[in-house]
């Protein structure tokens, strides 16, 4: 049987819009299957092990400590690195696949390298009614492509009273006006407190009845 050789480039392929990493990924057949890491071959830093063990002690089942353990890994390595996940899996006696499954489920666990400084700008309904979308673009523009930053538009952060707001390295700040953005970003770069007078921690209750009492 003879078949005319056909230039594969002439064959139209699908042009897809996948933006989820992993959808288009095949496995690497040269790797070994990812089983529960054997403690004999997986070195775990002592402090990480201790921190995870401390979490495990709180629950009746080891598995419960998965999310706290992943947070520990993220804190230590900046994101949930494959090595970090393997280490946590070794302590938890779970497979790394299980941990990556959990890690990708939650928004705050990063499975790709990200900048050290996190700025979550809330862009949910209440905040966007107060101009959060503009805030988000402004922050993005201000930060530019600084690799030290991880700027994300985030779903409701539970601080609609200070809309538009952002969570800067875990500190809630708001309402942020657009002209405060450069200051805010600079403060984060300098490692200073972000907009101290706009932090949620200092905010008093707005309930007139409650305020009248104290």
């Amino acid at each position: 049987m003879t078949i005319d050789p056909i230039d594969p480039r002439r064959v139209p392929r699908f042009d897809h819009g996948s933006r989820v990493p992993g959808w288009d990924e095949a496995v690497d057949l040269t790797k070994d299957p990812a089983e529960v890491p054997d403690p004999a071959t997986t070195p775990v830093p002592d402090d990480l092990r201790a921190a995870i063990e401390a979490h495990i002690a709180k629950y009746p089942e080891r598995r419960s400590a998965t999310v706290p353990a992943l947070r520990e890994v993220q804190e230590r390595y900046g994101w949930c690195t494959p090595e970090g996940i393997e280490q946590a899996a070794c302590v938890l006696r779970l497979t790394p696949a299980y941990l990556i499954s959990v890690a990708t489920f939650y928004d705050m666990l990063e499975t790709r390298p990200v900048g050290r400084n996190t700025i979550y700008v809330c862009t949910n309904i209440s905040c966007s009614l107060c101009g959060a979308d503009e805030l988000y673009t402004t922050v993005r523009d201000e930060v530019g492509d600084d690799p030290e930053f991880n700027v994300r538009s985030f779903e409701c952060l539970g601080a609609c009273d200070i809309a538009p707001m952002a969570s800067v390295n875990g500190t809630y700040v708001g309402p942020i006006s657009l002209d405060e953005v450069p200051t805010l970003v600079q403060q984060v770069r300098d490692g200073a407190e972000p907009l101290p007078d706009k932090q949620l921690a200092r905010r008093r209750s707005v309930d007139p009845n409650a305020a009248s009492r104290s």
């Binding site: 049987m1 078949i3 050789p5 056909i6 594969p8 064959v11 139209p12």
Partner: peptide, 14 residues
Amino acid sequence: TPELRVSAGERYAA
């Protein structure tokens, strides 16, 4: 296969 592409889909009639 990329080297031998006979039909447009994934498979062809050998």
